[in-house]
Design a protein around this nucleic acid. Structure first.
Ligand SMILES: NC(=O)c1ccc[n+]([C@@H]2O[C@H](COP(=O)([O-])OP(=O)(O)OC[C@H]3O[C@@H](n4cnc5c(N)ncnc54)[C@H](O)[C@@H]3O)[C@@H](O)[C@H]2O)c1
Ligand SMILES: NC(=O)c1ccc[n+]([C@@H]2O[C@H](COP(=O)([O-])OP(=O)(O)OC[C@H]3O[C@@H](n4cnc5c(N)ncnc54)[C@H](O)[C@@H]3O)[C@@H](O)[C@H]2O)c1
Lengths: 213, 213
DNA sequence: ACTAATATGTGAAGCTTTTCACAAGTAAAA
DNA sequence: TTTTACTTGTGAAAAGCTTCACATATTAGT
């Protein structure tokens, strides 16, 4: 599959953005798309789009562009969402419960198959057709449901407790919502959703603009 | 303030992470910290930490390290959170309402002073002491409350409607939760919280690992 | 069959970011 | 006062990423 051996993180992120655009075009019935069109909708350059895509193979037709659904399929294969991933949500609080209710994950190949918490008042309750499991049964639930990824939406203080238990149970990926850097054993990949960081990057930019004047 | 003239985005993001670590150390009563300690807790290198910090000035003492609360203060000034920002939340749905209830923004200098929606069944209701305003009154609310930043948590289809109205009312920054690239007029900065992108980056990594075997 | 128009794929150049290595500064102990 | 142990700040080198420019391929029209 992969031709080039090292793909940069920024390139992967852009490819994910291209997939969002292609999804919309697929719905819209568009058949082909040029690198320029993709760059327009994603805020990058046409050359960048072509370089990104060419590092995985040759998907386009010169003079024509890329086939929308064909390219979408290739990107799904590259990212690994040509199949469905089994996900467990740990921490059914404010953020966690918002995530379970959202259809956007399932649409894109991430199937939340289990939700867990430590709060006795939450355990046993139903959310979008799923029953909140007791964190005590974490290992059993993971095995029974074949969980591959964890969405971690617990308070900062509880993060390391959960991470300790993730290590032994064969899970290789975590999407973390707590604004802290996780220490994980080798072989486990973490990605962060860090809203405070984004806000701070935002106010930094605005602050610099003001200082320049 | 700024000595070096161009600060990279990655550097700003790392500095935000250093601030999280310093916040915890401040609470913990620690007085000094070395670049190595900061790198340990943030998953980067000591040289990187020093380069990042030195692009803004000289905050440390050779042989000793950095003063925790002193450095935190400097970073807050750099980022622009040595004062409070007035924020409005647009879209009080699943994600939106989770955000309003969270104290983490206010703690870090982002004060949600208004919440708005179009849904008549939501308008007038209270969330964490704030009343949901009618989106029809958007411009008035922004002016009355002195809103500087928008947190945008509306469905993808509604995004461009809201963005069109943001342009004319003096707002310069948007934190966007919709998984789409915003087209904004010059002078408005957008940062995205893109959970699907993070998940896709995660499964890409896992997929590559599997292919290597 | 030929021309015009269009758009990809890619080596090379240019630019940015990270890592390296060490001089220079600080404090405490001898 | 001198030595020792430690840690910053920073040029310079290395690595990585983006932009450029053009040969190459495809289609449509004449
Ligand atoms: N709410 C937000 O808007 C928001 C925004 C940014 C980041 N975050 C971060 O996301 C995380 C969750 O935030 P929240 O607002 O949903 O918190 P919350 O307190 O509403 O929910 C946390 C949930 O985790 C559960 N929990 C605690 N310890 C647990 C454990 N060891 N195992 C399993 N479950 C456990 C709690 O019972 C609770 O249901 C926090 O780290 C928070 O800092 C939240
Ligand atoms: N819920 C999640 O877990 C999740 C995860 C990732 C991304 N997102 C994205 O975040 C956004 C919000 O998601 P959600 O799940 O909270 O949706 P939601 O449907 O629960 O809430 C959206 C809210 O926006 C309001 N709204 C619609 N049009 C509006 C307009 N023009 N002006 C003001 N308000 C308007 C609706 O009335 C509703 O209250 C969406 O773009 C979604 O794709 C959500």
């Amino acid at each position: 599959m992969s031709i080039s051996n090292k793909i940069s993180d920024s390139s992967v992120r852009r490819i994910s953005i291209y997939l969002r655009i292609l999804e919309r075009m697929e719905k819209n019935g568009d058949e082909t798309v040029s690198s320029e069109e993709l760059s327009d909708h994603s805020g990058t350059t046409a050359a960048q789009v072509r370089k990104d895509l060419s590092s995985f193979g040759s998907f386009g037709k010169r003079g024509l562009g890329y086939g929308v659904s064909e390219l979408a399929l290739c990107i799904r294969k590259i990212i690994g969402v040509d199949r469905s991933w089994r996900v467990a949500l740990v921490g059914v609080g404010r953020i966690g419960s918002a995530l379970v209710d959202w259809g956007g994950f399932l649409d894109r190949g991430y199937d939340i198959v289990a939700i867990l918490d430590v709060d006795p008042s939450k355990i046993g309750q139903k959310w979008s057709g799923l029953t909140v499991c007791d964190m005590d049964d974490f290992e059993d639930v993971v095995r029974e449901q074949g969980v591959e990824l964890i969405i971690l939406a617990v308070p900062v203080e509880a993060v390391s407790d959960v991470v300790d238990r993730i290590a032994d149970v064969g899970i290789r990926g975590i999407l973390n919502f707590a604004p802290t850097t996780l220490r994980v054993p080798e072989g486990i990949t973490v990605k962060d959703v860090n809203m405070v960081m984004e806000l701070e990057a935002l106010s930094f930019t605005l602050n610099q603009q003001k200082l320049k004047e």
